[in-house]
Each structure stands twice: as C-alpha cells, then as structure tokens.
C-alpha cells in the first residue's frame, strides 16, 4: 500500500509538468502581447524588448516553459503583471477561503444526499422515492446563481439570519454560498446513492445478514451501504475537485474571495502568471484529491486493495 501511494505521488510530477505545459501553451496563443499591459503607451521598441526580457517573455515557448518549470519546482510561480505581487502568496491567501467553502459544501451535499438516496432506494417506487427524486431533479436543474439569489432574498434580506455576502461573519457567511453549491451536488449524489444502493439491495449477502438475525437498520447501514460506497465516493471525489477549482458563479453572487474569482479576474486582466500559477496549483490539489479517493477505495473494498498491492 505504501509503495502504491509513493508510486502515485511520483506520477504526480509528470502530470503537473504536462498540465503546466498545456496551460502555458494556451496562454501563449491567447492574443495580445502582455508587455503592452505593463509598458507605458509611448515606450520605444527597445524599451519594450527590455521589458520583455525583464518579464521573462523573451525566447521561444520551450525556453520560457523550462524557465518557468525551474522556478515552479522551487515554489516560485512568478509575479502578477497587475498587482505586482507574488502569485504563490496571492493564491495561498485565497486557498483557505476556497477550502473552507468546499468543505462545508461537501458536508452539506453528503449530509443531504446519502440519507435521501438510501431512503429512496429502500422504499423504491414509493412516495418517499418519488419525493426524493423530484427533489434531486429540482436541485440538478436549478441554476446555481438563481438559487443563490433566492437564498439571499429569503435568509439574508428577509429573515436576516445570514449575511448576503463577504467573509467577515465567520462560519455564518459560509452557510449560504455552501448551500447554494451543495444543493446541486447533493442532487447528483442522491441519484448516485440511490442507483448504487439499488444494485446492492437485492444481493444474496443481505438476505444472509438478515438470516443471521441482523436488524434491518444494520443490514442497510452496514452491509448494504459499505458495498454501495464506491460509486458514491467516485462522484464525491469529482465534485470535491470541481469545488476546489472554485465555483465562480457562487463566489460572484456572494462576493466570496475564493480561487475561482481569482482566476476569472486574472483572465480578464490578461494576468498570465496568476492564471498559470493558480491553475497549476489547482491541478496539484485535484490530483491529490484523486489520490486520496483511490486510497479510500482500498479501505472500503478489500478487492481493490488487493489490486493495488499486486
């Protein structure tokens, strides 16, 4: 198992290098010479060349790429063209906000979806099942930003329970954005949980558990759920990765200073070092989440663990 984890961590290196190259290449073909966004309007060609050199824009794509990689491996993601600040530092300021939001979002999504999915599956084709599925459909089809606005109108402007935006009220300011993103994720996870539980629920080993005298509650929560978890964890991992990349709409609606808005603002301003740096960091986070998900698989299903250690 340790060898497997080590192997996967080593595999992270080529993945990051490739991703960095793709982002780098895309940024390169994006039109407009970034030097103009920095230089004064009346700069001479010589001054522009000098500025290019200073900004690290001279040389071919590959030279610049390798120069960037060299710095990246030392933890230096360059300096923002716009704010002139260290990109790594800016990213690290935003990351805790995104992590907090992502964690609460996933907590809400899991807390709603797994019980709902189980109830739907156990009472398949009943009123409870239909109600859960309608709720899930609603969650899936409701636009994020619209739900966010509704929540603001009701819970912030109307009832005054939560702030309508910003990050100054601690946990309270997290609730509405987390619920806004979480509702959509919960909908998908409810459907996954239901489908996965339905696969498991007719299995012979549940009949066997009942024949042993295991209570119905425990049959479902212990014997069935653990077998149904793999697809649920897969969806969880994908969604967690997405949320880590930042949820631009919800962050905009709630003026939440997360990673998503950092990237979008940087794209607007053609702030290439910030875009590249933030995307590389997000890639790394997503890869780590994937790795963690794969490790969790092994603990949930011993047959997968056996494959890893082969």
């Amino acid at each position: 198992m340790h060898r497997y984890i080590l192997k996967r961590l080593l595999m992270l290196i080529p993945v990051l290098l490739c991703v960095a190259f793709v982002i780098f290449a895309i940024m390169n073909v994006a039109d407009g010479d970034p030097v103009y966004s920095v230089a004064s309007a009346d700069a001479t060609p010589e001054e522009l060349d000098a500025l290019r050199k200073e900004m690290g824009l001279d040389g071919s794509l590959l030279t610049r790429y390798f120069r960037y990689i060299g710095k990246m491996l030392k933890g230096d993601l360059g300096t923002s063209y716009v704010s002139k600040r260290d990109v790594m530092k800016t990213y690290m300021e935003r990351l805790p906000n995104t992590l907090k939001l992502a964690s609460l979002t996933m907590l809400i999504a899991v807390g709603m979806s797994i019980p709902l999915g189980i109830i739907a599956a156990v009472h398949q084709n009943s009123l409870k099942d239909t109600a859960s599925m309608v709720l899930a459909l609603l969650g899936l089809s409701m636009p994020n930003f619209w739900l966010g606005l509704l929540l603001i109108i009701v819970f912030s402007l109307g009832l005054g329970w939560f702030p309508s935006g910003g990050y100054t009220a601690g946990l309270k300011s997290l609730v509405l954005p987390a619920f806004t993103i979480g509702a959509g994720l919960a909908a998908l996870m409810t459907r996954t949980t239901r489908a996965s539980m339905l696969d498991v629920i007719r299995q012979d080993y549940l009949l066997m558990a009942r024949a042993k005298g295991v209570s119905e509650r425990k049959v479902i929560r212990k014997h069935a759920l653990k077998n149904a978890l793999i697809p649920i964890i897969t969806v969880f991992g994908v969604q967690f990765s997405n949320v880590l990349g930042g949820s631009v709409l919800a962050e905009t609606v709630f003026s939440w200073p997360g990673v998503g808005r950092l990237v979008v603002d940087a794209i607007d301003q053609r702030d290439i070092p910030t875009v590249t740096g933030a995307l590389v960091m997000t890639t790394m986070l997503v890869s780590i989440v994937n790795l963690v998900v794969d490790i969790i698989y092994a603990y949930v299903d011993p047959r997968i663990k056996a494959q890893y250690t082969k």
Binding site: Y205, L207, M208, A211, G213, N227, P302, R303
Partner: peptide, 24 residues
C-alpha cells in the same frame, strides 16, 4: 431477529454470493 441465526439458521445455495465481499 432474535430467532434468526439463534434458533434457526440457514445455509444458502450459492456461497459465491452470500458472503459480504467487504467484511472479513
């Protein structure tokens, strides 16, 4: 539930499918 497994036990037909794969 107290009767099942204690007073009466059952051995099922197909041992390949009646054991829960995720528990020892």
């Amino acid at each position: 539930e107290e009767v099942r497994g204690k007073e009466v036990s059952m051995i099922f037909q197909d041992p390949m499918t009646v054991l829960n794969p995720v528990f020892t």
